Simulated assay, not measured.
Amino acid sequence: MRAAVAATDTWTDPDGIRSPAGEVHAWLPGTNQTLCGIPTKKARLGRFSHVDWLDVQPATGRDADRVSSVCRRCLAATGHRRDEKPWRRTNPRP
């Protein structure tokens, strides 16, 4: 499953490529709603089929320059876990 992006706003970078801005949601191309259930037309969300969901994450994404917030429900729908630990204990104490 490759999720694309739907956003509340848009901006054009210096290279002329349209990028998402504002609040972003995960969206599957070919459907009329985001993964969290918001209808894209009624909510007036712009769809960006050329931008992957992983590319708009503020911590690591390349298209996250103007992203103000990421939908929590869409994060959960794509497999992100809130209490996932970024580290792993390799030598636990007995």
Rank of each mutant, 00 (worst) to 15 (best):
A3L: 10
A4Y: 00
A7E: 04
A7T: 04
T10C: 11
T10E: 15
D13L: 08
P14F: 11
D15R: 13
G16H: 10
S19G: 03
E23F: 04
E23Q: 14
V24L: 12
A26Q: 07
T31L: 06
N32P: 00
N32Y: 06
N32A: 15
N32W: 01
T34K: 04
T34H: 03
T34V: 03
C36K: 04
G37P: 02
G37S: 04
T40Q: 04
A43Y: 13
L45Y: 06
L45G: 11
G46A: 15
G46S: 14
R47A: 04
R47C: 14
F48A: 07
F48T: 08
S49L: 00
H50K: 07
W53G: 02
L54G: 01
L54S: 13
L54Q: 10
V56C: 11
Q57H: 15
P58T: 00
P58W: 05
A59D: 12
R62F: 09
R62L: 11
D63M: 13
D63E: 15
A64H: 09
S69Q: 12
S69N: 11
V70A: 08
L75N: 13
T78C: 14
T78Q: 09
T78S: 05
H80K: 05
H80I: 02
H80Y: 14
R81K: 13
D83A: 13
E84D: 10
K85C: 12
P86S: 06
R88T: 12
R88E: 08
R89G: 00
P92F: 00
R93N: 00
P94H: 02
